[in-house]
Write a protein that binds this DNA or RNA. Structure first.
Lengths: 219, 219
DNA sequence: CAAAAAAATGACTACCTGGTCATATTAGTA
DNA sequence: TACTAATATGACCAGGTAGTCATTTTTTTG
């Protein structure tokens, strides 16, 4: 977590600092991301980074926390109980995700690149931890649906949760794979990840739902 | 591709060389894999590697080609047309894959770690290329099933192919995620990836099939 | 304004890598 | 045996990194 020195920083300077590193971690893996380069860009001394944070990882975790907090303000406004079925809720998560993306491009890019970023050798453990948390969250959702009699219960919740998580990742990856979005490019123009492609994304989400619904729903 | 010098190498020495590098690339990413360390292990000079191959990537591609060729000898013995439906064929691919794994542990480990390995910054392009090939292969399969009237045709083949590919990857990843297998450990003991866990794998495959069948099959 | 506290600095360390190449060694040949 | 061709060698190069810390600069305070 940041040291006092960082918190004392003047608002504008702190924002510049944060933004520059969000950018760097959005287009590189953790290990690739170069503190040396970012400070050069910012025009500050490398030592300053270590006056503000304990280490590269410490800085990264702070940024992650911030981004997650901001995204939560968007997606946590909706609740499963307000939807007729899981898939409507699932879809709306993307609707609110897109809004988050539009209003916080940098944070969105950071989170978009997260899975890729954490594939770095030195962050394998962190990746496993976060992946585990995600899978557990999806597992819990699935469990609830089963209890409601809406999801089939002939498959272990772990497998259901794992696949649900992977489907979420797949949607994001297919958007990039198909060339619909190009994060490395859009971040250059300060554009959101899904700039002008919000409809494309939601269409793909609908497609995925249409496709996998029969797999998860109780017949 | 290897230089003549490598091909002239005495059988035993070549095997030692290949095996050592298969090991290295099986437990590390491409960028992490250290030629320096492997030659130390082999007791040869680093220069020798560059007498045999043009570059690290050249060496890697040679190993990849070899492993794929060996695996093909197993899985290419079966054909879709000899099965009543896609899923029986899909399952048998794993049955033959397990046999390949038992009889060629090192090659199997190499391929098992491939996706992870290629996530390295310097192999992003290669990864995209290979992923594209895999997706296209699955897409072609799906197309055929649609033509046979066995797969639903209300979803674009690209999405079907992409998800099918991701499901294949997921099965492998869940085996590791759940702790059923531990490649880093089993490679130490010269054990196959799925040593003693073949049944567990096939059970998971069956589970996945049971789960996703309703998503892909025409009702 | 002076003293003290806070913040910024950047040269430096320790460490790692892939790849090169002139030289030495070994093997093949006549 | 003597000459040649093939092979093996390892010191060395260029390039990169995260992190340190004594010193200087700036800001705050009394």
């Amino acid at each position: 977590m940041p040291k006092q020195t960082f918190l004392n920083l003047e608002e504008g300077k702190r924002k510049q600092f944060v933004d520059a590193f969000l950018r760097e971690f959005s287009i590189k893996t953790f290990d690739e991301a170069s503190i040396t380069e970012v400070v050069k860009l910012l025009g500050i001394a490398k030592g300053s980074v270590y006056q503000y944070f304990e280490s590269k990882l410490d800085l990264f975790l702070f940024l992650l926390q911030e981004c997650v907090a901001v995204k939560m303000k968007y997606v946590a406004t909706i609740e499963r109980k307000d939807y007729a079925d899981f898939w409507m809720y699932f879809r709306d998560l993307y609707v609110y995700g897109v809004q988050f993306d539009e209003e916080n491009p940098l944070q969105s890019h950071f989170l978009h690149n997260l899975v890729n970023n954490l594939n770095s050798p030195s962050t394998k453990e962190l990746y496993k931890e976060l992946e585990g948390q995600s899978v557990l969250a999806f597992e819990a959702m699935a469990k609830k649906e089963m209890e409601l009699g809406l999801f089939r219960d002939d498959i272990p919740t772990q497998t259901i949760g794992f696949l649900l998580y992977k489907i979420g990742v797949s949607i994001q990856e297919e958007m990039e794979y198909s060339g619909a979005i190009n994060p490395k490019e859009s971040i250059q123009n300060n554009s959101p990840v899904y700039q002008g492609k919000q409809e494309t994304l939601l269409k793909l989400v609908d497609q995925y739902i249409q496709l996998v619904k029969p797999a998860f729903d109780k017949q």
